Amino acid sequence: MLTLLRKLLDTSKKDIDNLQPILKQINDLEPTVQNLSDDELKAKARSFRDRAKGGEDLDKLMPEVFATVREVSKRTTGMRQFDVQILGGMVLHQGRIAEMKTGEGKTLVAVAPIVLNALTGRGSHLVTVNDYLARRDAVWMGKIYHFMGLSVGIIQGQNQESDELGGSYMYAPGADEMGDPRYLDMVPCSRRDAYSCDITYGTNHEFGFDYLRDNMAFSEEELSMRELNYAMIDEVDSILIDEARTPHIISGPSYEDVSVYNQINAVVKQLQPEVHYTADKKNHSANMTEEGMDFVEELLGIENIAADPRLFHHVNASVKAYALFTRDIDYVVQKGEVVIVDENTGRMMFG
């Protein structure tokens, strides 16, 4: 029954069949593109940008662009995109998910659709899972982008657990400014300059936090990102499902009286599980019982805690902290600061 349902609901084969005519166009163009000189290929890339900025439909440009990128890839990296990689790139351009088997070259699959969507000058983002991959793939594929006349930015975080240098960079062939062999062909730049590049590589966390920071900006000069256009996500199941359970939160210095936290902490420490509150770790919830609320009101010397929403919030938050979070599992304390541990990766989330 399940096999039958999969056959009825799975349109993958039909979708691939529908892309075969476009794949044939790309393959038919290959002999012509192979005969072009480097200068002629670069001129062709410039013409693509002019046509895209002039409003030509990217779907119409796709066969020529993909055929050109395939040839440029051969000349600059020694790797030719196979038909399965071309098909994967077409699916990604359409905004859909492409599942590639191990060894089918996901890094190279991304290049053609990233180039195609960067031609308009409005930017393309490639979202990956860690700083190492952002740097490695941007530099590795940077030869292709550079040949096509496109600039490349790299956004890295400042994670204390990573040995990556962190910061913002632009791809620059031959550069050696960082004194680190891993950062060859990269020059440091501002966050804004990295986002102003035609193509920007970075992690989901960095893109997410930069977006939040931009929404807190008071002037245009404080913005890092520009208007969002196109993004491709590597390991989409991990980023949009697993890691999406961990919220991105930006905090700033508090100027409020923090003595209330010590007061509430002293009260909540005296509460007994299953008597004064119930906890459900699976659903990540904790709630005070009627007896618990009466006990808290007695300890605080007030008649109705619900009449003070701010105080009620602090008590509930403290109950959840004690009931749902375990030290050295869900969080650690370093140098007097609490650091949350990512439940998906087991890594500490500094900052």
Results as ranks from 00 to 15, higher is better:
110 A>C: 10
139 V>G: 02
136 R>H: 08
124 S>I: 05
187 V>L: 12
195 Y>I: 01
147 F>R: 12
221 E>S: 14
232 M>S: 12
204 N>G: 06
165 L>Q: 14
226 R>D: 09
174 G>M: 07
230 Y>V: 13
173 P>Y: 06
236 V>C: 07
167 G>W: 05
130 N>S: 06
183 Y>T: 04
154 I>A: 05
115 V>I: 14
173 P>I: 05
130 N>K: 00
230 Y>A: 09
119 L>V: 07
170 M>N: 09
160 Q>A: 13
142 G>M: 04
167 G>F: 09
134 A>M: 02
232 M>L: 15
178 M>R: 04
204 N>Q: 09
120 T>A: 07
168 S>E: 02
215 N>M: 11
162 S>Y: 03
235 E>T: 04
153 G>T: 11
166 G>W: 01
126 L>H: 13
215 N>A: 09
196 S>L: 08
173 P>N: 09
182 R>I: 01
116 L>A: 13
199 I>C: 03
133 L>S: 06
207 F>V: 08
152 V>A: 05
139 V>R: 00
244 A>S: 14
184 L>R: 15
139 V>P: 01
197 C>A: 15
162 S>L: 02
144 I>T: 14
148 M>T: 07
196 S>A: 15
172 A>E: 13
228 L>K: 13
243 E>K: 10
230 Y>C: 13
123 G>E: 05
206 E>C: 09
193 D>I: 12
112 A>Y: 09
230 Y>E: 04
121 G>K: 09
190 S>Q: 07
139 V>F: 00
222 E>R: 04
140 W>N: 01
146 H>F: 12
244 A>G: 06
172 A>C: 12
244 A>D: 12
237 D>I: 05
187 V>S: 10
129 V>K: 02
125 H>M: 10
115 V>N: 11
204 N>K: 07
152 V>R: 04
155 I>V: 13
157 G>W: 01
203 T>R: 01
227 E>L: 12
171 Y>H: 04
136 R>F: 11
242 D>C: 06
216 M>W: 05
159 N>T: 09
235 E>A: 04
113 P>E: 08
208 G>V: 11
218 F>H: 10
178 M>N: 10
193 D>A: 15
156 Q>V: 04
220 E>H: 06
228 L>H: 12
222 E>K: 03
114 I>S: 14
129 V>A: 10
132 Y>M: 01
157 G>M: 09
239 I>Y: 04
224 S>Y: 08
130 N>D: 03
125 H>F: 10
160 Q>F: 09
240 L>E: 09
242 D>G: 06
206 E>A: 13
198 D>P: 06
215 N>Y: 09
220 E>F: 11
149 G>S: 12
137 D>S: 04
194 A>H: 03
130 N>G: 01
193 D>K: 15
192 R>C: 06
206 E>D: 14
173 P>G: 10
167 G>E: 03
181 P>F: 05
175 A>V: 08
225 M>P: 00
231 A>P: 02
213 R>G: 02
160 Q>H: 13
196 S>P: 00
161 E>L: 11
199 I>E: 01
